[in-house]
Amino acid sequence: MTMMIQAQVGRMMYGDTSRIGIPHSKDPHVVNFKGRYLMYYSIPPLKNEPQSGWNIGIAESHDLINWTKVGEITPVAGAEYEKKGLCAPGALVRDGVVHLFYQTYGNREKDAICHATSEDGINFKRNPTNPIFRPTGDWNCGRAIDAEVCEFKGKYYLYFASRDKDFKIQLQGVAVAPKNSSFNREDWKQACDAPILYPELGWEKDCIEGASIVKKGKKLFMFYAGAYNNAPQQIGVAESKDGIHWKRVFTEPFVANGKPGEWNSSESGHPHLFHDLDGRTYLFYQGNNDNGKTWYITNEEVFWKKGKPYLKR
Rank of each mutant, 00 (worst) to 15 (best):
I196Q: 04
T281W: 00
V176L: 14
I145P: 04
A191T: 00
T68H: 11
F101C: 09
K205A: 12
A112D: 01
R19G: 09
K165G: 06
A238V: 04
N180H: 01
I208A: 11
G57A: 03
A144E: 11
H29Q: 09
R108N: 14
A59V: 01
E186W: 04
Y285K: 08
H270T: 06
S25H: 04
C150S: 13
I169A: 08
R36I: 00
S18K: 13
D164C: 06
S266M: 07
I235A: 02
V97C: 10
Q8T: 15
G236Q: 05
M39D: 00
D146E: 07
E82T: 10
L158R: 08
P253N: 13
S18T: 11
F152H: 06
Q234F: 00
F160G: 07
S25D: 00
L283V: 00
P199E: 07
Y282D: 04
I22E: 08
K215I: 07
P195F: 11
C207Q: 15
A7R: 12
V302E: 03
N66T: 10
W188T: 13
I196W: 04
H62S: 15
K84C: 09
C207T: 13
Y156H: 12
H24C: 08
S52F: 04
P28Y: 01
K179M: 10
G210I: 02
N127S: 04
F124H: 08
V9S: 14
C192F: 03
K247L: 02
K308A: 12
G307K: 05
K165Q: 15
G137K: 01
S52L: 06
G96R: 10
R313V: 02
N107F: 03
V255E: 08
N257H: 15
K153T: 02
I22C: 06
F167G: 13
V214C: 11
V237M: 11
Y282P: 09
K306S: 14
D242M: 02
S25T: 12
F152K: 14
C192D: 09
T68L: 09
P271Y: 09
I145D: 08
G243K: 12
T281C: 14
L273G: 04
A227N: 15
M3V: 10
W67R: 10
W203T: 01
G173S: 07
V31G: 07
I235M: 05
A116H: 11
V98K: 06
